[in-house]
Amino acid sequence: LTVQLGNLEWHFDNPEQALKMAEELAKRYQLKVEIDNGTLKFK
């Protein structure tokens, strides 16, 4: 699973870790998370 923020990307083997990080980033920057083809992206 990949977490993508702008041109930064983090790759996780563990989806739970990816979701946890995505939630933290979304909270911190007040963004919405969307999943696009196995990639978590922020809007």
Score class of each variant (00 low, 15 high):
residue 37 N to A: 06
residue 22 A to W: 05
residue 21 M to L: 14
residue 25 L to E: 00
residue 10 W to L: 08
residue 17 Q to S: 10
residue 22 A to K: 00
residue 3 V to P: 01
residue 30 Q to K: 14
residue 20 K to N: 07
residue 2 T to Y: 05
residue 34 E to V: 15
residue 3 V to A: 03
residue 30 Q to E: 08
residue 27 K to W: 06
residue 18 A to G: 07
residue 25 L to D: 00
residue 19 L to T: 06
residue 26 A to F: 07
residue 36 D to L: 10
residue 43 K to D: 06
residue 19 L to I: 13
residue 14 N to E: 09
residue 23 E to Q: 13
residue 38 G to P: 01
residue 27 K to G: 05
residue 10 W to Q: 01
residue 6 G to K: 04
residue 36 D to T: 11
residue 32 K to P: 03
residue 5 L to E: 01
residue 8 L to A: 07
residue 36 D to S: 13
residue 11 H to M: 05
residue 10 W to G: 00
residue 28 R to H: 07
residue 40 L to R: 01
residue 15 P to K: 12
residue 4 Q to F: 06
residue 25 L to Q: 00
residue 29 Y to L: 12
residue 5 L to N: 02
residue 31 L to Q: 02
residue 27 K to P: 02
residue 31 L to C: 10
residue 21 M to R: 04
residue 14 N to R: 08
residue 32 K to Q: 13
residue 19 L to P: 00
residue 33 V to G: 01
residue 37 N to L: 04
residue 41 K to R: 14
residue 32 K to Y: 11
residue 14 N to W: 08
residue 10 W to N: 01
residue 30 Q to M: 10
residue 12 F to E: 01
residue 28 R to N: 04
residue 2 T to R: 10
residue 15 P to I: 13
residue 29 Y to P: 01
residue 43 K to Y: 15
residue 22 A to Y: 04
residue 3 V to Q: 02
residue 2 T to F: 06
residue 5 L to S: 03
residue 38 G to S: 05
residue 39 T to D: 04
residue 10 W to E: 00
residue 13 D to N: 12
residue 43 K to L: 14
residue 12 F to K: 00
residue 6 G to V: 03
residue 34 E to P: 00
residue 12 F to W: 05
residue 9 E to V: 15
residue 8 L to K: 14
residue 33 V to H: 02
residue 13 D to C: 10
residue 17 Q to V: 11
residue 39 T to G: 03
residue 8 L to N: 08
residue 40 L to A: 02
residue 43 K to M: 12
residue 10 W to Y: 06
residue 43 K to N: 08
residue 5 L to I: 09
residue 42 F to Y: 03
residue 17 Q to M: 12
residue 11 H to Q: 05
residue 39 T to Y: 14
residue 30 Q to H: 15
residue 11 H to S: 05
residue 9 E to K: 15
residue 40 L to S: 00
residue 23 E to R: 13
residue 6 G to W: 08
residue 36 D to Q: 10
residue 6 G to R: 05
residue 10 W to H: 02
residue 4 Q to S: 08
residue 1 L to A: 05
residue 38 G to W: 03
residue 4 Q to R: 11
residue 39 T to A: 05
residue 24 E to S: 12
residue 8 L to P: 00
residue 18 A to N: 00
residue 39 T to S: 07
residue 29 Y to A: 03
residue 31 L to E: 01
residue 3 V to Y: 01
residue 25 L to C: 10
residue 7 N to L: 11
residue 24 E to D: 10
residue 38 G to L: 06
residue 1 L to W: 14
residue 41 K to Y: 09
residue 12 F to V: 03
residue 2 T to C: 13
residue 28 R to I: 08
residue 34 E to N: 06
residue 29 Y to K: 01
residue 7 N to D: 10
residue 13 D to I: 09
residue 39 T to Q: 08
residue 41 K to W: 07
residue 17 Q to F: 11
residue 14 N to F: 09
residue 26 A to C: 13
residue 39 T to K: 14
residue 10 W to A: 02
residue 5 L to R: 01
residue 37 N to K: 09
residue 38 G to I: 04
residue 9 E to W: 13
residue 41 K to C: 11
residue 8 L to Q: 11
residue 40 L to V: 15
residue 32 K to H: 10
residue 21 M to I: 10
residue 4 Q to T: 09
residue 13 D to A: 10
residue 33 V to I: 15
residue 35 I to V: 10
residue 34 E to I: 15
residue 28 R to C: 14
residue 1 L to N: 04
residue 16 E to T: 10
residue 41 K to N: 05
residue 2 T to I: 12
residue 15 P to D: 05
residue 43 K to F: 14
residue 4 Q to Y: 08
residue 12 F to A: 02
residue 9 E to Q: 13
residue 30 Q to S: 10
residue 11 H to I: 09
residue 35 I to L: 13
residue 25 L to F: 11
residue 13 D to P: 11
residue 27 K to I: 08
residue 12 F to L: 03
residue 15 P to T: 12
residue 29 Y to C: 13
residue 28 R to V: 05
residue 33 V to N: 00
residue 36 D to N: 10
residue 31 L to Y: 05
residue 22 A to T: 02
residue 30 Q to P: 03
residue 20 K to M: 08
residue 28 R to E: 05
residue 35 I to S: 06
residue 37 N to R: 06
residue 7 N to M: 11
residue 19 L to A: 05
residue 19 L to S: 04
residue 33 V to A: 04
residue 2 T to Q: 04
residue 9 E to D: 05
residue 41 K to T: 11
residue 25 L to H: 01
residue 36 D to H: 13
residue 1 L to T: 08
residue 14 N to P: 04
residue 18 A to Q: 01
residue 15 P to L: 13
residue 24 E to M: 15
residue 8 L to G: 04
residue 10 W to F: 08
residue 28 R to D: 04
residue 20 K to D: 06
residue 32 K to V: 15
residue 14 N to G: 04
residue 22 A to D: 00
residue 25 L to Y: 07
residue 25 L to R: 00
residue 38 G to T: 05
residue 8 L to C: 15
residue 31 L to A: 02
residue 43 K to R: 11
residue 24 E to C: 15
residue 38 G to Q: 06
residue 41 K to F: 06
residue 7 N to Y: 12
residue 9 E to A: 11
residue 16 E to A: 13
residue 2 T to A: 06
residue 40 L to Q: 01
residue 31 L to H: 04
residue 32 K to L: 14
residue 23 E to K: 10
residue 23 E to A: 12
residue 10 W to R: 02
residue 10 W to T: 01
residue 8 L to D: 04
residue 6 G to N: 06
residue 25 L to M: 07
residue 32 K to W: 09
residue 34 E to S: 08
residue 6 G to M: 05
residue 4 Q to D: 03
residue 21 M to S: 03
residue 27 K to R: 13
residue 39 T to P: 00
residue 15 P to Y: 15
residue 36 D to V: 15
residue 27 K to S: 08
residue 6 G to F: 06
residue 11 H to Y: 12
residue 37 N to H: 07
residue 35 I to W: 14
residue 29 Y to Q: 02
residue 17 Q to D: 15
residue 11 H to A: 04
residue 19 L to K: 08
residue 22 A to C: 04
residue 27 K to F: 08
residue 4 Q to E: 05
residue 43 K to G: 07
residue 35 I to R: 10
residue 9 E to L: 14
residue 20 K to S: 09
residue 15 P to A: 12
residue 15 P to G: 06
residue 30 Q to A: 10
residue 24 E to W: 15
residue 36 D to R: 10
residue 15 P to Q: 10
residue 16 E to P: 03
residue 33 V to E: 00
residue 8 L to F: 13
residue 12 F to H: 01
residue 24 E to A: 14
residue 5 L to W: 15
residue 42 F to L: 15
residue 3 V to K: 01
residue 3 V to S: 02
residue 30 Q to I: 04
residue 7 N to G: 12
residue 25 L to K: 00
residue 34 E to F: 15
residue 3 V to F: 04
residue 39 T to N: 06
residue 14 N to H: 08
residue 21 M to F: 15
residue 1 L to F: 13
residue 23 E to W: 12
residue 7 N to K: 14
residue 6 G to Q: 03
residue 38 G to N: 10
residue 36 D to K: 09
residue 37 N to T: 04
residue 34 E to M: 14
residue 37 N to S: 07
residue 23 E to S: 11
residue 33 V to L: 11
residue 7 N to R: 14
residue 19 L to R: 09
residue 42 F to V: 15
residue 4 Q to G: 03
residue 41 K to A: 04
residue 19 L to E: 03
residue 17 Q to A: 13
residue 11 H to K: 09
residue 35 I to K: 07
residue 26 A to P: 00
residue 27 K to Q: 09
residue 37 N to F: 04
residue 13 D to K: 12
residue 33 V to Y: 15
residue 14 N to V: 08
residue 23 E to P: 00
residue 11 H to R: 07
residue 37 N to G: 14
residue 4 Q to L: 12
residue 2 T to S: 08
residue 37 N to E: 09
residue 31 L to P: 01
residue 7 N to C: 11
residue 29 Y to S: 02
residue 42 F to E: 02
residue 9 E to P: 01
residue 2 T to H: 07
residue 16 E to I: 12
residue 37 N to Y: 03
residue 6 G to E: 04
residue 1 L to P: 04
residue 17 Q to N: 09
residue 13 D to E: 11
residue 21 M to K: 08
residue 13 D to Q: 11
residue 9 E to S: 14
residue 1 L to H: 06
residue 38 G to D: 07
residue 18 A to F: 06
residue 3 V to H: 02
residue 42 F to N: 02
residue 24 E to Y: 15
residue 21 M to A: 06
residue 2 T to N: 07
residue 20 K to V: 08
residue 25 L to W: 08
residue 16 E to V: 13
residue 32 K to S: 12
residue 16 E to C: 12
residue 5 L to F: 14
residue 26 A to K: 05
residue 30 Q to Y: 10
residue 5 L to D: 02
residue 13 D to M: 09
residue 38 G to M: 06
residue 20 K to I: 10
residue 29 Y to I: 04
residue 34 E to K: 05
residue 25 L to V: 06
residue 28 R to L: 10
residue 33 V to T: 03
residue 18 A to I: 05
residue 33 V to P: 02
residue 9 E to Y: 13
residue 9 E to N: 09
residue 14 N to I: 10
residue 37 N to P: 01
residue 41 K to S: 08
residue 35 I to Y: 13
residue 1 L to E: 02
residue 42 F to A: 03
residue 20 K to G: 05
residue 19 L to C: 09
residue 21 M to W: 15
residue 5 L to K: 02
residue 37 N to I: 03
residue 42 F to Q: 03
residue 41 K to E: 03
residue 23 E to N: 13
residue 22 A to I: 08
residue 11 H to N: 04
residue 21 M to N: 02
residue 33 V to S: 02
residue 13 D to S: 12
residue 23 E to H: 12
residue 43 K to C: 15
residue 5 L to C: 14
residue 8 L to Y: 14
residue 26 A to E: 05
residue 29 Y to D: 02
residue 35 I to C: 08
residue 30 Q to T: 04
residue 4 Q to C: 10
residue 6 G to L: 06
residue 13 D to T: 12
residue 12 F to G: 01
residue 40 L to W: 03
residue 26 A to Q: 04
residue 5 L to G: 01
residue 39 T to R: 13
residue 1 L to S: 05
residue 23 E to T: 11
residue 11 H to T: 07
residue 19 L to G: 02
residue 26 A to D: 02
residue 2 T to G: 03
residue 30 Q to D: 12
residue 30 Q to R: 13
residue 24 E to I: 14
residue 20 K to H: 08
residue 2 T to D: 05
residue 26 A to M: 08
residue 33 V to R: 00
residue 28 R to T: 05
residue 30 Q to G: 15
residue 22 A to P: 00
residue 1 L to R: 06
residue 7 N to Q: 10
residue 2 T to W: 06
residue 25 L to I: 13
residue 19 L to Q: 05
residue 31 L to G: 02
residue 20 K to L: 09
residue 6 G to I: 04
residue 15 P to W: 15
residue 11 H to C: 10
residue 16 E to M: 13
